Each structure stands twice: as C-alpha cells, then as structure tokens.
Simulated assay, not measured.
Amino acid sequence: MTGAGGVATLTGSAWARAALRYGVIALAILSFLLALRRSGERAGWLAERLETMENTYEAQRRMLEAAARRPRSRDDLAERLRGGSF
C-alpha cells in the first residue's frame, strides 16, 4: 500500500522526526558558521581599510609639516642657503 497514507506514516515516525530535528540543527550550525566567516572577512577588510587610511593621514600630516617649515619667499630661501640650515 503505497500512497498518501504511506508518506504520512513515514513523516510521522519517530525516526523521521529525529532525522528532521538533526537536519534542522545541522542547517542552523552551518548558517551560523557561514555568518561568522562573513563577519570575519568584513572585519579583516575594515581593518585593512583603517590601516590604509592611517597611512594616508600620516603622509598628509608630514606634507603639511614640511609645508609649514618651507621658506616663504626667495629672500627667506637665500637666507637659509647662506646659513646652511636648508
């Protein structure tokens, strides 16, 4: 007797319920691990981006400091060259 009655008893059996329960647990664990991996990748990407931004800001700061120390005119440049402090 195969038919709708056979399928109903198969899904209603204790073995099928246990298999379904373990399947759902496995799916939940897999989903959690994939989300954790994605979160880790995102954190790594953000850390790399932060490091790049820090390097960029450091270079800009050094350029601004150098610009602040530059001679303001040709006369200032000549004085520095004569004084040997260039």
Rank of each mutant, 00 (worst) to 15 (best):
M1E: 02
T2Q: 10
T2E: 12
G3R: 10
G3M: 05
G3Q: 07
A4T: 09
G6H: 05
V7F: 10
V7H: 11
V7Y: 00
A8M: 12
A8F: 00
T9F: 02
T9G: 04
L10E: 07
T11Q: 08
T11N: 06
T11L: 14
G12K: 03
G12T: 01
G12H: 00
S13T: 13
S13K: 02
A14L: 14
A16P: 00
A19Q: 15
R21Y: 02
Y22I: 06
Y22R: 13
G23R: 00
V24H: 03
I25V: 11
A26E: 04
L27V: 11
A28Q: 08
I29E: 02
I29V: 14
F32K: 02
F32H: 05
A35P: 02
R38G: 10
R38E: 13
E41M: 07
R42D: 12
A43V: 06
G44F: 02
L46M: 13
E48K: 10
R49H: 06
L50C: 04
E51V: 07
T52W: 10
M53L: 14
M53N: 05
E54Y: 08
N55I: 06
N55E: 09
Y57I: 14
Q60M: 15
R62Q: 13
R62A: 11
M63F: 13
M63K: 15
R69T: 11
R69K: 15
R69L: 15
R70M: 13
R72C: 05
S73T: 15
S73C: 04
R74G: 14
R74I: 14
D75N: 13
A78W: 01
A78N: 09
L81G: 01
L81F: 13
R82H: 11
G83M: 06
G83N: 12
G84Y: 03
G84A: 13
S85K: 09
